[in-house]
Design a protein around this nucleic acid. Structure first.
Lengths: 256, 256
DNA sequence: TGAATAGTGTCTTTAAGACAGTATATC
DNA sequence: GATATACTGTCTTAAAGACACTATTCA
């Protein structure tokens, strides 16, 4: 076990908020699937959401952004603080407790140590186009990978079904604000955005009516280019009208 | 200064989350005005929102409810956790710091004491019919009173304009869920609920269309009784259809 | 009869929803 | 011409919005 990890255990509560953990649900979209980025502590059979502590000198948003950046290499992502979760008494792994620490490190840590106190989890979700991400492994977490949202592994650290709640918040968000700029590439086809919305909402959207709506709001612009997609008709490319999109983000809008 | 207060200073961080404070915006509605309940620490010229710490053994919602109950005497109120606020380095009063503690109590408290560390404020808002409340003063806070939302005094403890944010969240909430059961009396007139919504949203609502909407949704029921309101035509009383209202709370609905 | 508030109906406009056949590309 | 996907238009229905006069009560 590394020296800075031991230092963290001994003095972490001076530099980090010890009652809080930041818990990120990183959504990705690729190949017609909605995905979530999960990590696995080395040696553990179970997966967790990317979590981390918050420095006393930073804001919640900075803390969440730095955790996301550590995993994805990306910054300036859209981050949404969607919910708080009570009583997370372990932050990484049920196997991490005073006994297991003693066994693996020979260090005796008191049972009332700050690490073992109950914590509030601050849930953030974030959206990114899958292929922009280079998945980063780091230190404690040797595995890190994307999972289809409908085929998730059992999660160890999951107070109150964090992913479900994140997804619900995302859906609600979708009724008020546009989403897509973060999840799609700069230029995208109508079938892509149409499918994305169906996937996010988990229901059918009439393809003609939805397109009519998007175009009537001027939120997407039809380009002259087409995308080659193999042995089929080439779909036209669209891009977001940044001005309208930005305004919709700020003032709210209903696309549905 | 009382013994349990000193005990709190010395050992509070064992029993309370020391990185968090719970911050409540208690909205009331009475006499055509939207109001907020504020308190004033004894000796301070400035007002604050009802705040408090959270016990390590309780949930966020329990902590918020107990603070609200302490001030209003009411429980089972609708509570909505609407936002987090960064870097609240003082939780009650800028005048409370190591020096002032020494002056008033003779007790030397280290500058890195848990009370003076930066905190995250967890914002809740709650709604109640003004006249149900008996305003409770308690211990440290000798004044406690309702203020018209448009004529608030300067607030000492107000990271990020908590009341503004609470009001914004409330408005947004209003587009998705019904509100009124908590703010009106059991039986109310149409002008009352109409005015309440105008006041909450801070804009005109066509009286005919809004009534049409409420009735077509079956969310309010016209009673046979009328309310005597002085030298004018007596308005009919309405009550909420609890079944429809409850369903709307759970599933969401648009009244606007 | 004047002042203040309560109460109500119709028409217009806009948005949502349902629905299915044609077009393009490649093999 | 078979297959797979892209693309488009019209009609129906429902909801939202605009709008102004009448009713009641009391002094």
């Amino acid at each position: 076990m590394e020296a800075n990890w031991i230092n963290f255990i001994d003095h972490g509560d001076q530099h980090y908020m010890c009652d809080l953990i930041i818990c990120n649900v990183i959504f990705g979209y690729h190949d017609k699937e909605l995905k979530v980025l999960l990590q696995r502590p080395s040696g553990s059979p179970s997966w967790t959401l990317p979590v981390g502590f918050m420095k006393r000198t930073e804001t919640l948003e900075e803390a969440a952004a730095s955790i996301v950046k550590r995993r994805t290499g990306l910054d300036k992502l859209f981050l949404n603080q969607f919910k708080l979760f009570n009583s997370c008494s372990q932050y990484l792994d049920a196997n991490i407790n005073a006994d297991s620490f003693y066994k693996t490190t020979g260090r005796q840590i008191p049972k009332d140590h700050w690490m073992f106190k109950p914590k509030i989890a601050v849930g953030f979700y974030t959206l990114t186009e899958f292929s922009k991400v280079t998945v980063h492994e780091s230190g404690f977490f040797t595995d890190c990978q994307w999972w289809d949202i409908d085929r998730l592994p059992a999660l160890l650290f999951d107070p109150g079904h964090v992913i479900d709640e994140a997804r619900k918040s995302l859906c609600k968000h979708l009724y008020f604000y546009p989403i897509g700029y973060e999840l799609l590439e700069e230029k995208f086809t109508y079938p892509e955005i149409h499918h994305l919305y169906e996937r996010l909402l988990d229901r059918k959207l009439d393809e003609r009516n939805f397109l009519k709506k998007l175009l009537s709001m001027n939120i997407i612009i039809k380009l002259k280019e087409q995308k080659k997609i193999g042995p089929h008709r080439s779909p036209y490319l669209y891009s977001f009208n940044r001005e309208v999109y930005q305004k919709a983000i700020e003032e709210g809008v209903s696309l549905l």
